[in-house]
Amino acid sequence: MPETYQFVKRLPNDIGGLQADAVQQTDHVLLPWEKRCHALADVLDFHKIINTEEKRRGVEALGADLVGKLSYYERWIVAFANILFEKRILSPTDLALKMDEVAARPRD
């Protein structure tokens, strides 16, 4: 079997038993958008628009590089966008235009 197949069969979140650094007892108070993102995940699951398992799969599907570089809720929102495209609930253009509209609003 090619050496690369290990990256296909071991998903980037599957880290139990790997070597890692000492535990640092880190925490932070969620930013408002992070809390909204968490609430969005719950609401998407309540409606089974994106169930919790689909969200996990969507995060894994980002690949090891992005999983390693993005923060927790950054991974979630990108996964949600991809899954909504796959389900044809939103199109990439819908999201791009709406993001431009949101970005153009005055920020408080």
Binding site: L31, L40, Y73, F80, L95
Partner: peptide, 19 residues
């Protein structure tokens, strides 16, 4: 570490929710 504001990700979150 999570940045102090969400930047593009926060914009994406707002856009997805509103859509």
């Amino acid at each position: 570490a999570a940045p102090q504001h969400g930047g593009d990700y926060e914009i994406m979150e707002t856009a997805v929710r509103e859509l």
